[in-house]
Nucleic acid binder design. Structure first.
Length: 368
RNA sequence: GGGUAGAUGCCCGAGUGGCUAAAGGGGGCAGACUGUAAAUCUGCUGGCUAACGCCUACGCUGGUUCGAAUCCAGCUCUGCCCA
Protein backbone atom coordinates (compact mmCIF):
# COMPACT_ATOMS: atom_id res chain seq x y z
CA UNK A 1 0.00 0.00 0.00
CA UNK A 2 1.36 3.48 -0.86
CA UNK A 3 2.05 5.80 2.04
CA UNK A 4 -0.89 7.77 3.34
CA UNK A 5 -1.18 11.21 1.87
CA UNK A 6 -1.68 12.37 5.40
CA UNK A 7 1.82 11.37 6.59
CA UNK A 8 0.23 9.73 9.58
CA UNK A 9 2.64 9.60 12.52
CA UNK A 10 1.81 7.53 15.55
CA UNK A 11 3.10 9.43 18.57
CA UNK A 12 2.04 7.25 21.41
CA UNK A 13 0.23 4.00 21.96
CA UNK A 14 -1.24 3.40 25.41
CA UNK A 15 0.31 0.35 27.05
CA UNK A 16 -2.92 -0.82 28.69
CA UNK A 17 -5.52 0.34 26.17
CA UNK A 18 -5.84 0.58 22.41
CA UNK A 19 -5.91 4.38 22.76
CA UNK A 20 -3.34 6.16 20.65
CA UNK A 21 -2.15 9.66 19.85
CA UNK A 22 -1.00 10.71 16.41
CA UNK A 23 -0.34 13.64 14.15
CA UNK A 24 -1.04 13.93 10.48
CA UNK A 25 -0.76 16.48 7.76
CA UNK A 26 -3.62 17.68 5.59
CA UNK A 27 -3.46 20.23 2.79
CA UNK A 28 -4.24 22.86 5.42
CA UNK A 29 -2.06 21.95 8.32
CA UNK A 30 -1.01 19.54 11.00
CA UNK A 31 -3.68 17.71 12.94
CA UNK A 32 -3.31 16.13 16.32
CA UNK A 33 -5.44 13.19 17.35
CA UNK A 34 -7.56 11.95 19.00
CA UNK A 35 -9.72 14.77 17.79
CA UNK A 36 -13.27 15.95 17.44
CA UNK A 37 -14.65 17.58 14.29
CA UNK A 38 -17.53 20.01 14.75
CA UNK A 39 -20.23 19.44 12.18
CA UNK A 40 -20.60 22.19 9.63
CA UNK A 41 -23.06 20.61 7.25
CA UNK A 42 -23.80 23.67 5.14
CA UNK A 43 -20.35 25.23 5.20
CA UNK A 44 -21.04 26.66 8.63
CA UNK A 45 -21.00 25.16 12.08
CA UNK A 46 -24.45 26.29 13.08
CA UNK A 47 -24.41 29.58 14.98
CA UNK A 48 -20.61 29.63 15.21
CA UNK A 49 -18.07 32.07 13.83
CA UNK A 50 -14.97 30.44 12.34
CA UNK A 51 -12.79 32.49 14.69
CA UNK A 52 -14.63 31.09 17.69
CA UNK A 53 -14.05 27.56 16.40
CA UNK A 54 -10.40 28.32 15.90
CA UNK A 55 -10.11 29.75 19.40
CA UNK A 56 -11.82 26.68 20.87
CA UNK A 57 -9.24 24.48 19.17
CA UNK A 58 -11.13 23.09 16.19
CA UNK A 59 -8.62 21.61 13.77
CA UNK A 60 -10.93 20.19 11.17
CA UNK A 61 -14.59 20.64 10.38
CA UNK A 62 -17.01 18.27 8.73
CA UNK A 63 -19.07 19.54 5.83
CA UNK A 64 -21.66 17.71 3.82
CA UNK A 65 -21.46 16.93 0.13
CA UNK A 66 -25.13 16.26 -0.41
CA UNK A 67 -26.35 19.48 1.13
CA UNK A 68 -23.68 21.57 -0.55
CA UNK A 69 -24.34 19.88 -3.88
CA UNK A 70 -27.95 21.04 -3.70
CA UNK A 71 -27.05 24.48 -2.43
CA UNK A 72 -25.01 26.48 -3.29
CA UNK A 73 -23.80 23.86 -5.81
CA UNK A 74 -20.29 22.82 -6.89
CA UNK A 75 -19.94 25.64 -9.39
CA UNK A 76 -20.01 28.17 -6.55
CA UNK A 77 -17.12 26.41 -4.85
CA UNK A 78 -15.18 26.26 -8.10
CA UNK A 79 -15.76 29.95 -8.64
CA UNK A 80 -14.97 30.91 -5.04
CA UNK A 81 -11.86 28.77 -4.82
CA UNK A 82 -13.10 26.09 -2.45
CA UNK A 83 -14.80 25.89 0.89
CA UNK A 84 -11.92 27.25 2.97
CA UNK A 85 -11.89 30.54 1.18
CA UNK A 86 -15.67 30.59 0.84
CA UNK A 87 -16.40 30.27 4.55
CA UNK A 88 -13.12 31.84 5.72
CA UNK A 89 -12.04 28.76 7.58
CA UNK A 90 -8.25 28.37 7.67
CA UNK A 91 -8.19 24.87 9.15
CA UNK A 92 -8.90 21.54 7.57
CA UNK A 93 -12.19 20.25 6.22
CA UNK A 94 -13.52 16.74 5.83
CA UNK A 95 -16.51 16.25 3.58
CA UNK A 96 -18.99 13.53 4.21
CA UNK A 97 -20.09 11.93 0.97
CA UNK A 98 -23.87 12.02 1.29
CA UNK A 99 -24.01 8.38 2.34
CA UNK A 100 -25.66 9.27 5.62
CA UNK A 101 -28.36 11.19 3.78
CA UNK A 102 -29.26 7.95 1.99
CA UNK A 103 -30.19 6.74 5.44
CA UNK A 104 -31.65 9.87 6.99
CA UNK A 105 -33.51 11.86 4.37
CA UNK A 106 -37.22 11.16 3.95
CA UNK A 107 -37.13 11.86 0.24
CA UNK A 108 -34.54 9.29 -0.64
CA UNK A 109 -36.16 7.26 -3.34
CA UNK A 110 -34.18 4.29 -4.48
CA UNK A 111 -30.82 2.65 -4.48
CA UNK A 112 -29.25 1.18 -7.56
CA UNK A 113 -25.78 0.05 -8.44
CA UNK A 114 -25.34 3.44 -10.10
CA UNK A 115 -26.01 5.39 -6.92
CA UNK A 116 -28.75 6.75 -4.73
CA UNK A 117 -31.65 8.64 -6.21
CA UNK A 118 -32.92 11.53 -4.13
CA UNK A 119 -35.58 14.10 -4.56
CA UNK A 120 -33.99 17.44 -3.84
CA UNK A 121 -35.55 19.27 -0.89
CA UNK A 122 -34.56 22.53 -2.56
CA UNK A 123 -36.36 22.25 -5.85
CA UNK A 124 -37.84 18.76 -5.95
CA UNK A 125 -35.73 17.53 -8.83
CA UNK A 126 -34.50 13.96 -8.91
CA UNK A 127 -30.79 13.63 -8.32
CA UNK A 128 -28.70 10.54 -8.87
CA UNK A 129 -25.94 10.76 -6.31
CA UNK A 130 -23.34 8.38 -7.73
CA UNK A 131 -19.92 7.74 -6.20
CA UNK A 132 -18.44 9.75 -9.06
CA UNK A 133 -20.76 12.72 -8.53
CA UNK A 134 -20.02 12.65 -4.81
CA UNK A 135 -16.27 12.70 -5.39
CA UNK A 136 -16.48 15.32 -8.14
CA UNK A 137 -18.50 17.48 -5.78
CA UNK A 138 -16.05 16.95 -2.95
CA UNK A 139 -13.22 17.92 -5.29
CA UNK A 140 -15.08 21.11 -6.17
CA UNK A 141 -15.69 21.82 -2.50
CA UNK A 142 -11.97 21.33 -2.01
CA UNK A 143 -12.00 19.44 1.26
CA UNK A 144 -8.83 18.02 2.73
CA UNK A 145 -10.38 14.63 3.31
CA UNK A 146 -13.08 13.16 1.10
CA UNK A 147 -15.31 10.28 2.13
CA UNK A 148 -16.39 7.58 -0.28
CA UNK A 149 -20.10 7.34 -0.91
CA UNK A 150 -21.35 4.50 1.22
CA UNK A 151 -24.67 2.88 1.81
CA UNK A 152 -25.57 3.57 5.41
CA UNK A 153 -28.34 1.36 6.74
CA UNK A 154 -29.97 1.01 10.15
CA UNK A 155 -27.70 -0.99 12.45
CA UNK A 156 -30.62 -3.28 13.13
CA UNK A 157 -30.76 -4.37 9.48
CA UNK A 158 -30.82 -8.09 8.84
CA UNK A 159 -27.75 -9.88 7.60
CA UNK A 160 -28.85 -10.07 4.01
CA UNK A 161 -29.47 -6.34 3.77
CA UNK A 162 -26.27 -5.56 5.66
CA UNK A 163 -24.22 -7.75 3.33
CA UNK A 164 -25.75 -6.15 0.27
CA UNK A 165 -25.04 -2.68 1.63
CA UNK A 166 -21.43 -3.38 2.41
CA UNK A 167 -20.86 -4.98 -0.97
CA UNK A 168 -22.30 -1.96 -2.74
CA UNK A 169 -20.17 0.26 -0.53
CA UNK A 170 -17.14 -1.79 -1.53
CA UNK A 171 -17.78 -1.39 -5.24
CA UNK A 172 -18.51 2.29 -4.79
CA UNK A 173 -15.17 2.63 -2.98
CA UNK A 174 -13.36 1.36 -6.06
CA UNK A 175 -15.22 3.83 -8.24
CA UNK A 176 -14.58 6.67 -5.81
CA UNK A 177 -10.83 6.10 -5.87
CA UNK A 178 -10.87 6.10 -9.64
CA UNK A 179 -12.93 9.30 -9.69
CA UNK A 180 -10.33 11.17 -7.63
CA UNK A 181 -7.92 11.16 -10.59
CA UNK A 182 -5.06 13.59 -9.94
CA UNK A 183 -6.56 15.39 -6.96
CA UNK A 184 -4.19 15.74 -3.99
CA UNK A 185 -7.12 15.41 -1.59
CA UNK A 186 -7.10 12.47 0.78
CA UNK A 187 -9.83 9.86 0.77
CA UNK A 188 -11.25 7.62 3.47
CA UNK A 189 -13.20 4.40 2.96
CA UNK A 190 -16.10 3.43 5.21
CA UNK A 191 -16.51 0.05 6.84
CA UNK A 192 -20.10 -1.15 7.00
CA UNK A 193 -21.64 -4.46 8.09
CA UNK A 194 -24.19 -3.48 10.72
CA UNK A 195 -23.76 -5.55 13.89
CA UNK A 196 -22.40 -8.68 12.23
CA UNK A 197 -18.74 -9.30 13.14
CA UNK A 198 -18.14 -11.40 10.06
CA UNK A 199 -19.53 -8.70 7.80
CA UNK A 200 -17.46 -6.01 9.50
CA UNK A 201 -14.40 -8.17 8.92
CA UNK A 202 -15.31 -8.76 5.30
CA UNK A 203 -15.89 -5.07 4.75
CA UNK A 204 -12.67 -3.95 6.45
CA UNK A 205 -10.52 -6.53 4.70
CA UNK A 206 -11.91 -5.67 1.32
CA UNK A 207 -11.40 -1.94 1.75
CA UNK A 208 -7.90 -2.35 3.16
CA UNK A 209 -6.81 -3.80 -0.16
CA UNK A 210 -7.20 -0.35 -1.62
CA UNK A 211 -4.94 2.68 -1.10
CA UNK A 212 -7.15 4.77 1.17
CA UNK A 213 -5.59 7.40 3.40
CA UNK A 214 -7.76 6.49 6.34
CA UNK A 215 -10.67 4.29 7.31
CA UNK A 216 -13.97 5.11 8.87
CA UNK A 217 -16.36 3.00 10.85
CA UNK A 218 -19.83 3.77 9.56
CA UNK A 219 -23.28 2.56 10.36
CA UNK A 220 -23.11 3.03 14.11
CA UNK A 221 -25.21 5.20 16.40
CA UNK A 222 -28.11 4.47 14.09
CA UNK A 223 -30.35 2.40 16.31
CA UNK A 224 -28.19 -0.09 18.21
CA UNK A 225 -27.61 -0.34 21.96
CA UNK A 226 -24.55 1.28 23.51
CA UNK A 227 -22.91 -2.05 24.27
CA UNK A 228 -23.43 -3.28 20.71
CA UNK A 229 -21.94 -0.08 19.39
CA UNK A 230 -18.88 -0.46 21.55
CA UNK A 231 -18.40 -4.09 20.65
CA UNK A 232 -18.61 -3.44 16.93
CA UNK A 233 -16.37 -0.42 17.28
CA UNK A 234 -13.76 -2.44 19.14
CA UNK A 235 -13.85 -5.29 16.70
CA UNK A 236 -13.69 -3.07 13.64
CA UNK A 237 -11.00 -0.71 14.90
CA UNK A 238 -8.79 -3.69 15.65
CA UNK A 239 -9.05 -4.83 12.04
CA UNK A 240 -7.92 -1.52 10.59
CA UNK A 241 -4.31 -0.71 9.71
CA UNK A 242 -2.29 0.90 12.47
CA UNK A 243 -0.69 3.43 10.14
CA UNK A 244 -3.88 5.14 9.03
CA UNK A 245 -6.37 7.35 10.89
CA UNK A 246 -9.48 5.62 12.16
CA UNK A 247 -12.65 7.65 12.16
CA UNK A 248 -15.87 6.67 13.93
CA UNK A 249 -18.55 8.49 12.00
CA UNK A 250 -21.26 10.43 13.76
CA UNK A 251 -20.29 9.49 17.30
CA UNK A 252 -21.12 10.74 19.79
CA UNK A 253 -21.65 11.78 23.37
CA UNK A 254 -18.53 12.60 25.40
CA UNK A 255 -18.76 9.16 26.96
CA UNK A 256 -19.14 7.47 23.56
CA UNK A 257 -16.01 9.25 22.39
CA UNK A 258 -14.08 8.19 25.45
CA UNK A 259 -15.13 4.57 24.95
CA UNK A 260 -14.14 4.65 21.30
CA UNK A 261 -10.71 6.18 21.96
CA UNK A 262 -10.13 3.31 24.37
CA UNK A 263 -10.89 0.98 21.46
CA UNK A 264 -8.41 2.62 19.11
CA UNK A 265 -10.37 5.34 17.30
CA UNK A 266 -8.69 8.64 16.37
CA UNK A 267 -11.37 10.85 14.87
CA UNK A 268 -14.95 11.77 15.69
CA UNK A 269 -17.71 14.05 14.58
CA UNK A 270 -21.13 14.61 16.00
CA UNK A 271 -23.94 17.10 15.85
CA UNK A 272 -24.64 16.73 19.55
CA UNK A 273 -22.70 19.71 20.94
CA UNK A 274 -24.23 22.16 18.48
CA UNK A 275 -27.64 20.52 18.30
CA UNK A 276 -28.34 20.34 22.01
CA UNK A 277 -27.00 23.88 22.50
CA UNK A 278 -29.99 25.08 20.54
CA UNK A 279 -32.20 23.67 23.29
CA UNK A 280 -30.11 24.88 26.16
CA UNK A 281 -28.25 21.68 27.05
CA UNK A 282 -24.64 22.15 28.03
CA UNK A 283 -21.84 19.76 28.89
CA UNK A 284 -19.93 20.70 32.00
CA UNK A 285 -17.37 19.24 34.37
CA UNK A 286 -20.30 18.41 36.64
CA UNK A 287 -22.44 16.75 33.99
CA UNK A 288 -25.13 18.05 31.68
CA UNK A 289 -26.75 21.34 32.64
CA UNK A 290 -30.16 22.03 31.13
CA UNK A 291 -30.24 25.79 31.01
CA UNK A 292 -33.89 25.94 30.03
CA UNK A 293 -34.74 24.96 33.61
CA UNK A 294 -36.26 27.70 35.71
CA UNK A 295 -33.91 26.88 38.57
CA UNK A 296 -31.27 28.91 36.72
CA UNK A 297 -33.41 32.03 36.51
CA UNK A 298 -31.42 33.82 39.20
CA UNK A 299 -28.18 31.83 38.90
CA UNK A 300 -25.52 34.51 38.90
CA UNK A 301 -22.63 32.14 38.33
CA UNK A 302 -20.73 30.77 35.35
CA UNK A 303 -22.08 27.79 33.45
CA UNK A 304 -19.04 25.76 34.46
CA UNK A 305 -16.58 27.29 36.90
CA UNK A 306 -13.98 24.73 35.79
CA UNK A 307 -14.26 25.71 32.13
CA UNK A 308 -11.79 28.03 30.41
CA UNK A 309 -14.02 29.01 27.51
CA UNK A 310 -14.92 32.66 26.84
CA UNK A 311 -18.59 32.02 27.57
CA UNK A 312 -17.91 30.69 31.05
CA UNK A 313 -15.49 33.53 31.67
CA UNK A 314 -18.10 36.15 30.97
CA UNK A 315 -21.74 35.11 31.17
CA UNK A 316 -23.98 33.89 33.95
CA UNK A 317 -26.26 30.88 33.92
CA UNK A 318 -29.14 33.29 34.45
CA UNK A 319 -28.33 35.12 31.22
CA UNK A 320 -27.91 31.91 29.24
CA UNK A 321 -31.18 30.66 30.74
CA UNK A 322 -32.89 33.84 29.61
CA UNK A 323 -31.46 33.55 26.09
CA UNK A 324 -32.65 29.94 25.87
CA UNK A 325 -36.13 30.75 27.14
CA UNK A 326 -36.50 33.56 24.67
CA UNK A 327 -34.97 31.47 21.90
CA UNK A 328 -32.51 34.20 21.14
CA UNK A 329 -29.91 33.13 18.58
CA UNK A 330 -27.15 34.40 20.85
CA UNK A 331 -28.02 31.66 23.33
CA UNK A 332 -27.52 28.99 20.71
CA UNK A 333 -24.28 30.64 19.70
CA UNK A 334 -22.84 30.94 23.21
CA UNK A 335 -23.88 27.51 24.38
CA UNK A 336 -22.66 25.94 21.15
CA UNK A 337 -19.35 27.68 21.63
CA UNK A 338 -19.12 26.32 25.14
CA UNK A 339 -20.06 22.78 24.09
CA UNK A 340 -17.54 22.71 21.27
CA UNK A 341 -14.91 23.97 23.66
CA UNK A 342 -15.92 21.22 26.06
CA UNK A 343 -15.44 18.54 23.41
CA UNK A 344 -12.08 19.89 22.34
CA UNK A 345 -10.94 20.18 25.92
CA UNK A 346 -11.96 16.57 26.48
CA UNK A 347 -9.93 15.52 23.43
CA UNK A 348 -6.90 17.51 24.59
CA UNK A 349 -7.15 15.90 28.00
CA UNK A 350 -7.43 12.47 26.43
CA UNK A 351 -4.53 13.11 24.08
CA UNK A 352 -2.30 14.38 26.85
CA UNK A 353 -3.06 11.36 28.96
CA UNK A 354 -2.13 9.05 26.09
CA UNK A 355 1.14 10.89 25.53
CA UNK A 356 1.91 10.39 29.22
CA UNK A 357 0.60 6.82 29.13
CA UNK A 358 -2.05 7.33 31.76
CA UNK A 359 -5.10 7.13 29.53
CA UNK A 360 -6.62 4.12 31.23
CA UNK A 361 -6.68 5.91 34.55
CA UNK A 362 -8.39 8.92 32.99
CA UNK A 363 -10.81 6.61 31.21
CA UNK A 364 -11.79 4.93 34.45
CA UNK A 365 -12.23 8.25 36.24
CA UNK A 366 -14.36 9.72 33.47
CA UNK A 367 -16.60 6.69 33.25
CA UNK A 368 -17.74 7.03 36.83
C1' G B 1 -76.56 58.32 34.44
C1' G B 2 -78.14 55.37 29.72
C1' G B 3 -76.80 51.62 26.23
C1' U B 4 -73.81 47.62 24.84
C1' A B 5 -70.12 43.59 24.98
C1' G B 6 -67.82 40.63 28.30
C1' A B 7 -65.99 37.93 33.11
C1' U B 8 -63.59 30.14 31.83
C1' G B 9 -58.02 26.47 35.01
C1' C B 10 -50.92 30.03 36.24
C1' C B 11 -51.87 33.27 31.36
C1' C B 12 -54.47 33.71 26.57
C1' G B 13 -58.64 31.41 24.72
C1' A B 14 -62.69 27.60 22.76
C1' G B 15 -67.10 25.70 24.60
C1' U B 16 -73.12 27.73 24.92
C1' G B 17 -78.12 22.15 28.96
C1' G B 18 -75.73 15.66 29.99
C1' C B 19 -70.22 12.60 25.93
C1' U B 20 -66.70 18.66 30.66
C1' A B 21 -61.60 18.32 35.25
C1' A B 22 -63.43 21.51 30.63
C1' A B 23 -60.63 21.98 23.09
C1' G B 24 -56.28 24.69 21.43
C1' G B 25 -52.09 27.79 22.48
C1' G B 26 -48.58 29.83 25.99
C1' G B 27 -46.08 29.02 30.50
C1' G B 28 -44.27 25.14 33.82
C1' C B 29 -42.27 20.09 34.57
C1' A B 30 -39.95 15.78 32.44
C1' G B 31 -37.74 13.21 28.30
C1' A B 32 -35.61 12.55 23.32
C1' C B 33 -31.92 14.24 19.86
C1' U B 34 -25.18 10.66 17.88
C1' G B 35 -21.61 11.12 9.33
C1' U B 36 -28.10 18.01 11.25
C1' A B 37 -33.69 19.35 5.53
C1' A B 38 -36.85 21.32 9.25
C1' A B 39 -35.08 26.64 16.87
C1' U B 40 -37.86 19.75 16.13
C1' C B 41 -40.43 15.70 18.51
C1' U B 42 -42.87 13.02 22.87
C1' G B 43 -45.25 12.75 27.69
C1' C B 44 -47.35 15.22 32.12
C1' U B 45 -49.58 19.80 33.95
C1' G B 46 -56.70 21.65 39.72
C1' G B 47 -56.12 19.11 44.90
C1' C B 48 -55.64 14.46 47.85
C1' U B 49 -54.38 9.05 46.60
C1' A B 50 -50.24 3.44 45.12
C1' A B 51 -54.99 2.76 42.88
C1' C B 52 -60.58 2.51 42.87
C1' G B 53 -62.19 7.04 44.08
C1' C B 54 -63.30 11.53 46.62
C1' C B 55 -63.15 16.87 46.77
C1' U B 56 -62.90 21.68 44.48
C1' A B 57 -63.58 24.54 39.77
C1' C B 58 -65.95 28.34 34.45
C1' G B 59 -66.97 36.63 38.48
C1' C B 60 -70.67 36.58 43.11
C1' U B 61 -75.63 35.20 45.12
C1' G B 62 -79.98 32.90 44.26
C1' G B 63 -83.30 30.30 40.84
C1' U B 64 -85.11 26.82 36.69
C1' U B 65 -83.91 21.55 35.65
C1' C B 66 -83.33 14.60 36.89
C1' G B 67 -78.76 17.35 35.36
C1' A B 68 -75.95 24.15 34.58
C1' A B 69 -69.52 26.83 32.49
C1' U B 70 -73.81 26.68 29.26
C1' C B 71 -80.87 28.94 30.69
C1' C B 72 -83.22 33.00 34.18
C1' A B 73 -82.86 37.11 37.97
C1' G B 74 -80.13 40.39 40.91
C1' C B 75 -75.37 42.07 42.15
C1' U B 76 -69.91 43.15 41.39
C1' C B 77 -66.13 44.31 38.09
C1' U B 78 -64.03 45.41 33.02
C1' G B 79 -64.02 47.22 27.77
C1' C B 80 -66.55 50.24 24.20
C1' C B 81 -70.42 53.90 22.73
C1' C B 82 -73.80 57.95 24.13
C1' A B 83 -74.76 61.95 27.72
Amino acid sequence: MPPSRLSFQLEAQASDSRARAATFQTLHGVIKSPLFMPVGTQATVKAQLPEALEAAGSQILLANTYHLLLRPGPEVFRKMGGIHRFMKWPGSVLTDSGGYQIFSLPHSRSMTEAGAVFQSYVDGQRILLSPELSIQTQMAIGSDIMMVLDQCIPSTADEKAARAALQVTQRWAVRSLAAREESPQSMFAIVQGALYPQLRRESAEGLMQMPFDGFAIGGLAVGEAKQEREDVCELTAALLPADRPRYLMGVGTPLDVLEAVHRGVDMFDCIIPTQVAKRGSCFTSRGIVELRRSVYKFADEPLDPMCSCPVCAKYSRAYLHHLTKTQEPLGWQLMGQHNIHFYHELMREIRQSILEDRFLKLYQEKRQ
